[in-house]
Design a protein around this nucleic acid. Structure first.
Ligand SMILES: NC(=O)c1ccc[n+]([C@@H]2O[C@H](COP(=O)([O-])OP(=O)(O)OC[C@H]3O[C@@H](n4cnc5c(N)ncnc54)[C@H](O)[C@@H]3O)[C@@H](O)[C@H]2O)c1
Ligand SMILES: NC(=O)c1ccc[n+]([C@@H]2O[C@H](COP(=O)([O-])OP(=O)(O)OC[C@H]3O[C@@H](n4cnc5c(N)ncnc54)[C@H](O)[C@@H]3O)[C@@H](O)[C@H]2O)c1
Lengths: 228, 228
DNA sequence: TATTGCTTGTTCTCTTGTTCACAAACTCGC
DNA sequence: GCGAGTTTGTGAACAAGAGAACAAGCAATA
């Protein structure tokens, strides 16, 4: 009996959001159950891998039938620690920061953008429509505040996630400020390796990196399967 | 003698862009050589791993000294197939598409945004300043064209990379159009699994996925090292 | 209740990736 | 030219992950 809280391998953790997304699509289409084979097809992975991954969450399938879509979604959420909303602050309201702020997909997926800060006085006060998980309340707005007020803002709004969308040279300072403000995890778009305490998990999304990896597989075109 | 063109493991390929970025930073600071230990520090990985990774490119270090920064950068580029510029077309000129188009970092890193297409007639004709690898020629512009002209545009500008920044429901159609136009690799921001021929490598960048992975490690905070 | 058909959960094997540890090889100062 | 100090490149041990295969278990039907 492994129990639901046994260790989940890193490789599995990286795939759980993919399964979650596929399950959400299935639920939207009205499907109530799904087999590992179908789930694997839709997620583009091996079926045995799907079953093994899901077995780490507990034994929630029914032999001869498959998995209950809604219930499995809940188990994935529970395993990932997606309990309620995790509020997000965006640091840097430039090209990318504005795109992120205007993007409704965050709130829909449980990560509402609750605050935005920038260092540029001209940007302070700009208003952005806010979309929470429960529909869009058109009247609610997020106002861009000065980065110096970061700690205050994080505390007042109980924000736990920081997104860095500043230029590269300001990214480490932004990370330091976020850590000092008590943020619990960081997603950065700046192409630099951040120096943060081990207790603060962080990930980097770098488009040039992705394109460079693609470049390699393109050069080897046909001879290798893409590893996404 | 493994030779420079022996197989490079997937895990290594995924790290090469990181090394490349660190090396570029070092070169900018005027450093001419670097040891595996220092490179590992800056990249946030194990030094032995760095040496093993680099050994797949060939034997380019000097014992007792380290690696020549400029030369190693060239070797990484060669291995990744970064020969000259790989021109990019962006499909979808919305929030994200505009941010990407206005972002100079692409061109600087060898992936100039050479064309943009959208399905919305209102967006056709919009001009975006273009930044090539060699400085910014303020007069050059990229004009948003209709998505129906995609094949033509791709052919005329010798574009090899497609970036999908359309809404989720249009992503597969965009992918199909890109493949039909003869694109060689695809980077998608839509949170869906694309169905493309095996000969076209593709990768997905999904922010919600990243945040969900962070959520897991945050819940296990302190007990686990982030795996980025 | 027995039988049939299907799908999970898990075991086992193979492959890939990581890390340690150290000989080989190079530089530099003397 | 030699010795001291450094750093690479790689063999070997170890860990993690992938995938095939199949027994166990459930549903449905008769
Ligand atoms: N725009 C893109 O499509 C894109 C793509 C890939 C990566 N990136 C990366 O994302 C980051 C942002 O890109 P961008 O195009 O939005 O840049 P940008 O210059 O348009 O915006 C940066 C914003 O950060 C603000 N800022 C600067 N220093 C700050 C600080 N110390 N604290 C708070 N705010 C600060 C600036 O005032 C500005 O509003 C960069 O690191 C870039 O490399 C962007
Ligand atoms: N904006 C963000 O910060 C962000 C973050 C994460 C993911 N995404 C994803 O990126 C994608 C784009 O997001 P967005 O906020 O820019 O959306 P958006 O609605 O602002 O822009 C989408 C654009 O695509 C165009 N389009 C629609 N159908 C098309 C088609 N068939 N061919 C060509 N163009 C078409 C639309 O006209 C529009 O201009 C979405 O899939 C979204 O989930 C966006």
């Amino acid at each position: 009996m492994p129990g639901p809280s046994a260790a989940v391998p890193d490789a599995t953790v990286e795939r759980l959001p993919l399964y979650h997304q596929v399950l959400a699509d299935l639920a939207r289409e009205g499907e109530t159950t799904v087999s590992s084979v179908r789930l694997a097809e839709l997620a583009g992975v091996n079926a045995a891998k799907v079953r093994k991954d899901l077995s780490f969450l507990g034994s929630y399938g029914t032999r001869g039938v498959g998995y209950d879509v809604e219930f499995l979604m809940l188990q994935v959420q529970r395993t990932l620690g997606l309990t309620g909303d995790a509020r997000v602050v965006i640091v840097g309201f430039g090209n990318l920061g504005q795109a992120l702020a205007n993007y409704g997909g965050f709130g829909e997926r449980g990560f509402p953008v609750t605050a935005i800060v920038d260092a540029d006085p001209d940007k302070i006060g700009t208003q952005v429509p806010r979309s929470d998980a429960n529909g869009e309340s058109a009247t609610e707005r997020v106002v861009v505040e000065h980065v110096e007020r970061l700690a205050e803002v994080v505390r007042d709004h109980k924000i736990t996630v920081g997104v860095i969308a500043t230029p590269q040279h300001a990214a480490q300072a932004a990370a330091d400020a976020l850590v000092a403000a008590g943020i619990q995890s960081i997603l950065s778009f700046a192409p630099v390796v951040l120096d943060v305490p081990e207790s603060v998990p962080w990930r980097k999304v770098d488009l040039a990196t992705e394109l460079q990896i693609l470049s390699f597989y393109q050069a080897r075109s046909g001879s290798l399967q893409h590893p996404a």
